[in-house]
Nucleic acid binder design. Structure first.
Lengths: 115, 115
DNA sequence: CGTGTACTTTACCGATTAGTTACATAACCG
DNA sequence: CGGTTATGTAACTAATCGGTAAAGTACACG
């Protein structure tokens, strides 16, 4: 239960409601009410989800009069992508040729290893 | 809380112990005892982690006498990679010009919001 | 057969999570 | 000022999670 950043990111993404919120924010910023609209749950529930996303660094919130517009912050996803790279040969079928594998080694050297 | 596959995968990855187990399995299959060795926790705890990973489809278990060797199954990670792709422009700075343009729109919105 | 080894299952515990309702705060609008 | 709108906080609940100890299962070996 180390609260490392990668764990926070994965945990935040492990909920379909939160992923739907991110999908909405990918097309531009939105208020909490706008984000809550597609769901059956109450506003406080959505507010909590936003808190989780914010804590994971996946969204940032501004302030505009009585609205608190949210926008997507993709930076934590880079850590996920970096982590994924180390397993690419296990899921990317177009990657199992030798030269591709050598290329993967090259890429791994460019990234610093995180866990 | 739809128990969709992607949620299961992300949830399984949201624990450093389980990610360490996957890292170990990336270099070849191992028995439960071998996997448990680096950790301070008891065997049943590791067994539970393996169950979570197995349920997420990230590992598969064989049977060899009294040993139950585990091996990594990367397929669910492809779903993660596919999901990630839709957000690439938010974290990959070396993306193409179209996405740089889209990203600049996003930044302008951030700028507007600060005023 | 009995004993050891390699695990799994069960039962429990404390912490966290995802949701609720009810209330509080904050800003605009007449 | 008072009312409406937008959002956050508090308190509660049920379910899940990560861990434990103890008992159960399955196989190998002498």
């Amino acid at each position: 239960m180390t609260p490392d950043r990668l764990s926070h990111t994965f945990a935040a993404l492990a909920d379909p409601t939160r992923r739907a919120i991110l999908a909405r924010l990918a097309s531009g910023q939105a208020s909490v009410t706008e984000l809550a609209a597609p769901f059956q749950m109450t506003m406080p529930a959505v507010s909590k989800h936003l808190k989780v996303l914010e804590r994971a660094g996946l969204i940032a919130r501004g302030r505009e009069a009585q609205w608190r517009p949210c926008r997507l912050e993709g930076e934590p996803l880079r850590d996920v992508a970096d982590w994924m790279e180390q397993y690419r040969r296990f899921w990317d079928e177009s990657f199992d040729r030798l030269d591709d594998y050598l290329q993967s080694i090259q890429k791994e050297k460019k990234h610093d290893e995180r866990q």
